[in-house]
Structure formats: C-alpha cells, structure tokens
Write a protein that binds this DNA or RNA. Structure first.
Lengths: 248, 248
DNA sequence: GCAAAAGTGTTCCGACTACACCCATGC
DNA sequence: GCATGGGTGTAGTCGGAACACTTTTGC
C-alpha cells in the first residue's frame, strides 16, 4: 500500500525491495522393503558446502527453462533407475534464513525449496553411485539429523504418505505387477504401523472394491497355503476413481 | 550426472545454468455471503503490466527478508480488513512461460507463484479500495477469464475448499461467533452444492461431535420458530482433533 | 500330524438414510 | 388458522470390527 509508486527509482535501497531467489527441489523418496518390512527413505551425503558430510534429501537447483516437476524427475533419475513411480508436489518451504548461504551476503539471494514426494518400487530401484557423494536407503526409524530443514520436510512427507495410502491406490506403484493380498497387507502394516485393520476385513474390503484382478496363478512362499496373485486393474479403477473410497 | 564438474567455469553459458527467480504469492480468498447464499472469491483488477485491465487473484512479489506466509498475509491485509481468517498454502506453480514477463529477456528471470488459500468472514471483511485498481467479490459462478494461470489456481483452491469442509472445522472461521445450525447448514449447501445431506441428519451428526456449544440465547429471523445460537468450542475440539471426523 | 499362511463366513453393533412428526413463531 | 423454519424421533439398512472356522501347503 506504500512504497509501490516510488519503487522504480530506489529499488535496491528500499526496505521493500524484492527478493531474488534460487529455487531448489527436494525429494522425499519412499520405498518399502518387503523382505524386511521396513519403510525406507532415500538420502544422499552432501559433497558441497554448506553441510558437507551431512545426510540430506536428494535435491537440486532448478535450471533455466526447466519446470519444477522436470527438476524433480531429474534428481530422481540421477540417483536411481526406476520403471514405475509416483510423484507429487508436497509443500514449499521458503522462509528467510532456512539456508545458511543466505546469510553470506546481506540481502543476497534467497533459497526456496519446493519439495516433492515420491514412491518407488524397491526391487526395481537401482541406486546410482556417482563416486563422489554417498547415497543410501535409510529406514525411517533410523534417519539421522539432516541438512537444512530436511527433517521437517521428511516429517511432512511421511504424513502425506500415510494419508495417501488411505484413499489413493499409490500402494500399487510400489508393489510388483503381481502381488498377493498378503503382500499388500504387509505394505500397509509397514507404513501405517501395527494394527490398523484385521487382515480378513482388509482383504474383504479391498476385493469388494473391484479393481483387484485375480490372475489365477498362485505362489507358494515357504510354509502355508499358496496365495493367489492379483493385479491392479487400472481400467476398472478409472471408473471408480471419483467415488470416495477407503482402504484404511 | 553430467556438467556438474565443469559448471564452475562456464556457468552462465551452459545449458544447465541455474534459473533466477522472483517469487510471487497469489491468494485464493473465499468468503460466503450468507444473505444471498453465494460463494465469493476476491479478485483485483490489474493496474500494471502485464495483463493491465484484467481481473486476477490478489498477489504480490516476495520482498527481502519476508517469508512466504508473511507475503500472503500482507496481500490480504492490503486488500481487506478482517479479524478472523483461515490461511494455508495451496500449491506452487512454477513452469517456465507461465508469466509473459519471462519471454521479454531470453533466459532472464523466472516467475514462480506460491498460492495460498484463505477463508474470511464476509460480514467483517471490509474491502480496501486504493483508488487505483479495482477490487471486488465475485460469485464463483461468474468469475471471468483471469490473468496468468489464475483460473487454474482458483479451480485448485475450490477443490481444496470443498475437501477441507468435509473434515476440518474451517466453516467456523467464516461464520460469526454465534450462529444457528441453519446458518451452518446453509454454508455447507452454498459451498458444496445442493443435496449433500439431509438437514436433520446433518444437525444430529454435528451435535453428536460435541464441540458445538448451545449459548442458550435464541434468534428469530422472520417467520418460523426461533433458532438456538451455537458457538464453536475450540477447547472441546482440540481434544477430538486427531480423531477422524466427517461433517459431510 | 502339526504349524503356518490363505481364504471364508458369521455375528454384533454403531452409524448413516430417509423419513414422519412435533414445536414455536409471524402474519 | 396457516405457512415457515426449528427441532426430535424412529425404523430400516449398510458397513465395519471382531473372531471363529476351513483350506492348502511344508515339514
């Protein structure tokens, strides 16, 4: 309401001068290790200042001509090779002083982070070591203190993951093409924690939704009765997608 | 995976040079006119290039030392005076070429928009006309073509509003302190459209939740039996906030 | 046979739906 | 009285929770 008219003349000296930004994209990449029933996050060891030698979320700064989502995909593809994945924007963190590089020059450039949330198939995901910086899947329970405000971003991403699982079919982006209902149940247990639902009720509910296709084949894993392999029927789901649905 | 090592020397010439950003904040500000049962959005007429003379969402560019949320509040307070409001971040739109100012200089500055979603009390909201640009509440059904990608942002905000209404108590940020259950019902009807629930069922469900306090006083509006005035009990709600709850 | 995992069925109970009906006011 | 909106109650139904039970495998 004030200063707007004079700005042209004294731009850089005024208190309300515009901030210049570099925009970073940070990815919260989850995966589920079905063997060990662990929820994993992908972390990289920083090899540049600031925070050299500290673990952080994989991220990058946005380049000229590159969209935010492009940048998010680029980070991902530089770190892991995957065929299938789920990706969505998470939140934008942009307070001043969230990046120590800002304090270097007074009123210098600001760093803003647009975070993305991704889910990939653990079995397919092949980590790309570039020889310089470390890269590793960390069990969510063992994540150390991260660079910047990345612990906060991670916590936010984990919340989103849990919410999404309840009303979105993102689980099928992490499971192999053919999976047993036990696999699916284990995935939910791993992410949401113990006792979110009885197995047989979970089973009945999911099957009633009608987008799980019994392939006819069965698989036997050690002791116990062999389980039917199911496939996610994307076409059948499309029809139902607008109706509210709960996997709990 | 490539170019990372050489970047220091030929930074500005390389294809993967970093983009420089100005960051804008655009607000989708909703209100509900209880008299006429209309859902309203606040729009402003642009008085500067680009898009002079076109309606747009109220927005601003982020200043030095200012957080994103600060900027969002600043836009709001420059346009309207309100006592109570709900505000949350919506989404970040950041593709190249979303702002025509970008094409002016090749590889010049990029414009990124962090959008916020707000809900204010219509009766309390006093619009601030600055004499230069227009400002007006538009019924959602009559919104014209807006500047930039603002129609898209608005559509996204409307979706969020509908979702939030179902599981969050944001309605009470828009209603006056004391309101009748009829007021509350009308609000839901106005935002969500006809026939989302029977009135008596809606009433029973809400009262059972236990955070609506009957003030004892009654109000009479024209014909019909006087209605009890209720108040939202924030303390009672705090206790229940973590449990899933549906107002439908 | 026994343990282990898959798969089926059944009972109980709470919640939502769809109404019908009573109450208090203005005119 | 009658129209209007507020407020209460109820019968039917659907779906989830809990749990018992059957089936098919490995050993």
């Amino acid at each position: 309401m004030h200063g707007k008219l004079q700005r042209k003349t004294t731009d850089l000296l005024e208190a309300d001068a515009l901030a210049d930004f570099k925009v970073g994209v940070d990815n919260v990449i989850f995966s589920v290790d079905a063997e060990q029933n662990r929820l994993l996050v992908l972390l990289v060891m920083r090899s540049e200042e600031p925070y050299v030698g500290t673990w952080s979320l994989p991220g990058t700064l946005v380049r000229q001509g590159e969209s935010l989502e492009d940048a998010a995909y680029r980070v991902l593809s530089e770190k892991i090779r995957v065929n299938n994945l789920y990706l969505e924007q998470l939140y934008t963190f942009g307070g001043p002083d969230r990046d120590p590089r800002e304090s270097a020059e007074v009123f210098g450039v600001r760093y803003l982070s647009v975070s993305y949330f991704a889910l990939v198939r653990f079995a397919e995901a092949e980590l790309i070591a570039d020889g310089v910086s470390g890269i590793a899947w960390y069990p969510l329970t063992q994540v150390p203190t991260l660079a910047f405000d990345h612990n906060e971003i991670l916590a936010y991403g984990y919340q989103r993951l849990k919410n999404k699982l309840e009303y979105s079919p993102i689980a099928f982006d992490v499971l192999p093409d053919r999976f047993t209902l036990g696999d699916l149940y284990q995935l939910y247990m791993t992410v949401l924690g113990e006792a979110f639902s009885d197995y047989s009720n979970f089973r009945a509910r999911l099957l009633k939704l009608g987008f799980l296709q019994d392939t006819g084949t069965k698989t036997s894993r050690g002791a116990g009765r062999p389980a039917s392999l199911y496939r996610f029927d994307a076409e059948a789901f499309e029809i139902l997608k607008d109706k509210p649905m709960v996997f709990i």
